[in-house]
Every structure is written in C-alpha cells, then in structure tokens.
Amino acid sequence: MDSSPTGNVRETGSPATPPARPTPPARPARRAALPLAGFNGRMMAPGLLLLAAVSLLPLAAVIAMSFARVHLLGGLRLEGVGAENWARLFTDPDMAWAWVRTAVYFVLTVGGEMALGTALAVCLWRLRRGRNAALSLLLLPMFVAPVIVGLLGRFLTDSTFGLYTWLLRQLGYNGDVMADQTSAFAAVTLMDIWEWTPLVALIALAGLTTVPSSALEAASLDGAGLPRTLRHIVLPSIAPVLLVALLIRSMDALRYFDIIWNTTGGGPANATKTASVQLYETAFRFFDFGYAAVTGLLMLAVTTVVARYFVRLLERKEPAR
C-alpha cells in the first residue's frame, strides 16, 4: 500500500510550502515510501485514520467474538471455543433458509428499485411540464426514517383500521395481507421499494440529463422509436450512473431490517425472516453474541463480494467514457 516510487510532480512540490491545513497529519511523514505521505496522503490521513479507528477495532473484536463464547456479566469476557460457532453455521437449517429468503428479498427489492427507478426517471425526463414539481414530490419517501416506514407500513396494513386493508377490501381482496406468507413477503418488499425507488430515480435522472442531445437527434432522424433509442443510446450512456445507484442500494439492502422488524417481526411462519432479522434476534433476544458475530461476518462477506462485483463492472465501464 506504499505510494508509487515514481511519485509525481504534484506531490513533491507541496511539503515545502505547507499551507494552512485544517488538520495536521497523524505523523509528519516526509518519505514518499510511507503510506499517507505527501500532499495527497496528508489530505487522506484524517479521514482514513478516523475511519480505521471506528471500523477496524470493532471488526477485530467481532472476529474474536466469533471464536468465543461471550460473557457479559461483570464486564465482557471471551471464552475461546475454537470454531464451534462457525461449525454451527453449517448445521443450522434456519440459517440456510434465512439466506434463501435474503437472496430473494435482495433481488426483488434492489431489482425492483432499479427497474422502477429507471423507468420513473425516463418518464420524468420525457415530461415537458411539471417535471420539477413531480420530482420534488416523488423524492419524499427517501427522506423518511426506516423505522417510521416500518411503523407506517404497520399502520396502513393493520387488519382493523389500515387504509390499505380497507382499499383492498373495496377491491374484493378479503384476506389479511400480513397473515399470509406470500402477501406478507410482498408487502415488506413493496415497503422497501416505496422508500428507495426515489433515490434510484434521482440518480438515473441525473444520468439522463447528460445524455448527449446530438446522439438523440441523430437517432430520431433515423426514425428510431423510443424503445430502440432507450435501449441503444440512453441505457448504455447511463449504465455507469445506474451502477452507482446499484452499489449504494446493495450496501444497505442486506443490513437494514427496520421495516421487517416493525411490521411482521419475521413471520408469518418465518416467511420474512431474513439474515439481518435473524442476526438481530441472535444478538439481542438470545444474547448469543458469538453466533451473532459469525452471522454478521458472513453478511459482511456476502455484501463485500456483491459490492466488489458491481465495482468491477463499474471500473470496466469507466474507461469507455
């Protein structure tokens, strides 16, 4: 991780004229061989060191906990149990199912948000009048706290006084949304989509406004219809921006569970018990922090792999532009 020996011109000029820096670097490093040396290094130092402090130490502790039985009373104490917690992972049928549901939930929510968000952005982009007002209103859900989205979802689907329950009944659906496994799962998925589609739409719209108009003119002169224009000109040029949206959503989609926790609590019949709900239960209902650490690390690993894949795609797209 040391900086490249060839360095560069811009980096060597700075140390001689130290301007008013907001924060001094952690260590006055002059040699270019040290990481975080040079002007760029000093710029990065405060942020990265702080980030390291708030993330690496807890991570190390979680890894230690995953190999231990965690005692809380009288101060935290770790009693080493080897790979016992990890071994349990492979014999735990709940965990396997939780991951299946997580995968489905991830694909449906993030996929739905990407598709609907892009579609919405294209509609807004084609809208001649009232685009601003519409966008302002459509963005609102992303400003709602997830815990409120969960409670609001519960309020709307309550089988006694929920507005949506009443609307569904007018439409001839007399079941109880949260009582059936499929509809409960659909409901929590839709709540997540409700909250996060606007973010994707916003990012996609930002991408759309940069599509070169010359290319669009050319396409319309060729007589290409909207679908073909979208497919061959618009989508390729906003693909990198969409990947950014995808990355932002995938970072959070696996971790957040406020909506599920506040509506179904994982039921009925475990239908909405995703890995993050299970993690929360293991830690704070069962106080089994060793096994929770294992679950947490697994989630981190999966998120990392997924994100890594999207970043690779992004990097592959970047040079093309």
Binding site: D158, S159, T160, P268
Partner: peptide, 20 residues
C-alpha cells in the same frame, strides 16, 4: 378471526375495541 395471525396483544386489543 383470520386476522388473528397478524395481531400481537396490541393489535388484538384494538380489534376488540373496534367491535369486530
């Protein structure tokens, strides 16, 4: 009531009070 499967004690209390 089939909605029982969506109620905890609070939801049940509200349903009872609503007269269903």
């Amino acid at each position: 009531d089939p909605a029982s499967r969506t109620w905890d004690w609070d939801g049940l209390g509200a349903a009872f009070r609503s007269g269903r």
